[in-house]
């Protein structure tokens, strides 16, 4: 059963790494990478168990997730592009104006 342990280990560490990126890094681009990491961790899980069960639907689900992740990245990057144009640097401490 060590293979399922390996899968859980990999996806879990990937997820935590993504979350760490998201929380700790100040550059927005790095945070987007963190987001992608979290999504890929989930994808890893789905693909691993779909393969073991030979369940094509699972693989189809993984494909679907990748498409959704791509859409999300597009939207994120377009926002950050605008921020770069406005601010010159996509830093999270440039966007602290709204508070209270």
């Amino acid at each position: 059963m060590n293979s399922s342990l390996l899968v859980w280990g990999a996806s879990g560490s990937l997820f935590i790494l993504g979350a760490a990126f998201l929380v700790l890094r100040r550059q927005l681009i790095a945070m987007i990478i963190g987001l992608e990491l979290m999504i890929n961790a989930a994808n890893l899980n789905i693909v691993a168990y779909a393969a073991r069960r030979g369940d094509a639907a699972g693989l189809a689900a993984a494909m679907l997730v990748i498409a959704a992740a791509a859409a999300e990245a597009v939207v994120g990057l377009s926002l950050i592009l605008n921020l770069l144009r406005e601010e010159g640097a996509a830093e999270s401490d440039r966007i602290r104006e709204l508070s209270g």
Binding site: A19, L22, V23, L24, R26, S92, D93, I95, R96, E97, L98, S99, G100
Partner: peptide
């Protein structure tokens, strides 16, 4: 309580996670 919501994105995400 307003000390926690001072606008930093990273803090928000930290509290969420």
């Amino acid at each position: 309580l307003s000390f926690f919501s001072r606008g930093a994105l990273n803090d928000y995400l930290w509290w969420m996670i």
